[in-house]
Design a protein around this nucleic acid. Structure first.
Lengths: 253, 253
DNA sequence: AGAAGGACCAGTGGTCCGTA
DNA sequence: AGAAGGACCAGTGGTCCGTA
């Protein structure tokens, strides 16, 4: 019973590694040897076997897990974190110990793939089927070897990905402008909010509906801050237009 | 800012009590004096002011809350629980210290009204908007004075309500049959699963889709046991039909 | 300084089991 | 015994803040 789903999981690229590993390399990657991997998109990282298992009832019990400690990274336990992001133009690959924005957006697509796998397993087993990228999906991604995916990171940049999905032109223009000005990732990230609010204004302010209407965006929770910005902007817009209307018709001056 | 939503809340029947109180009486009611209330549907219970406030950020901060301890129930603190349910026919009012099944189903409609209010408040404030009857909705219902609504009860009978929504004919027939046989509520409740599985079979087994397609049912989580039953039944149906097919075509006998 | 992510926390879904 | 519901608990969404 439980083994069916696990079969489905490992069915694909099992000769060497689970298939999702392959996608990891598409943009760029973490640290250590990963800058060399960028273009060919084939070299694969062996996943660390994670010894401390969770005792959860369902789904995420281990596939095969027989690799030893780590064989990558020159043997040391030096690489701790992914390289930081820098602002890159569309199509541009980050140089040095940096990751580019195409790679960032690629991570969102990978999470989507992981969600779809989790959904397929859940359906096969007749269990509750998540519609969003939940903790369960992040846990699954980690188990599948995608240690470079984590919840705080993905949540942090969701609205940037949203702009990329909803208005790629504007997103691309913003990336070019911020790269040219030499801005850091934090500044670019902040700047992504405003054009998104403009998109929301154009479409009637319902940011949840806007996310849900987009096939790749619908699986992400609307970030709190984006929701608040849309609400604040709608309110002040509505207030000023009602003042205008009232001023002409009713106010005593 | 916060006051708008509260206005909307109390806007309606404020002369005496919040309007949702009125609906409470539609079927029958809890204990004490409530059996007398059944038919006219007007007498209203004053809500207990709940002194221990939650410190939650949003929504459920108190409306007006000025009534004193309790003035109902002959003064004593005797009534502790709702009267138990008994199996009644459609339209039949329970006698004695019992509640009928129309009243049970009415509670589901009330929860829906509470959800809609919570949703309206959330939308006005630009906050996350629940699509299901969540803990937040139960908390809101309690604050609004509907102390007779609680999560374990509502979850316990969801599938009974589902059958009522999805196949009222069958639901009514089941009620009549179980009443006639003098079965207790537990037996009736158990018996509601099977016809639901039949409904699911007819509609392609996707019980989540079936719930979601129904406007009054879509706000309820699919009960775990119902999901499991549908899955088990689909699996064994599929297995036996594939054995049949395989037996004719491929098996060596 | 700017940024990645382990780890925490309040409130959730789910339901058991002490209560009447 | 049959049933109502307080209260608990594992795992969630959300993000802070100690880390590098």
């Amino acid at each position: 019973d439980a083994s069916h789903a696990l079969d489905a999981l490992s069915q694909e690229g099992l000769s060497e590694e689970p298939v999702q590993q392959e996608k990891e390399a598409a943009g760029s990657g973490g640290g250590g040897v990963w800058e060399m991997v960028v273009a060919n998109g084939r070299k694969q990282r062996r996943r660390k076997s994670c010894k401390g298992r969770s005792r959860m009832a369902s789904m995420e019990e281990d596939e095969e897990d027989d690799d030893e400690e780590e064989t990558e990274e020159g043997g040391g336990n030096e690489r701790q974190r992914e390289h930081p992001f820098i602002v890159t133009e569309p199509g541009e690959v980050a140089r040095g110990k940096k990751n580019g924005l195409d790679y960032l957006f690629h991570l969102y697509e990978q999470c989507r793939d992981f969600l779809i796998q989790v959904q397929n397993i859940a359906k096969e087993r007749g269990e509750k089927c998540p519609t969003k990228v939940t903790n369960q999906v992040f846990r699954y991604a980690k188990k599948a070897g995608a240690n470079y995916i984590n919840k705080p990171k993905m949540r942090h940049y969701v609205h940037c990905y949203a702009l990329h999905c909803l208005d790629e032109e504007t997103s691309n223009a913003l990336r070019r402008a911020f790269k040219e000005r030499g801005e850091n990732v934090g500044a670019w990230r902040q700047a992504c909010y405003k054009p998104l609010v403009v998109v929301a204004a154009r479409q009637g302010w319902d940011i949840d509906a806007i996310f849900n209407a987009h096939p790749r965006l619908s699986i992400w929770y609307v970030p709190t801050k984006l929701r608040q910005l849309c609400h604040a902007e709608r309110s002040s817009t509505a207030a000023s237009s009602s003042i205008t209307a009232a001023g002409v018709d009713h106010l005593p001056f």
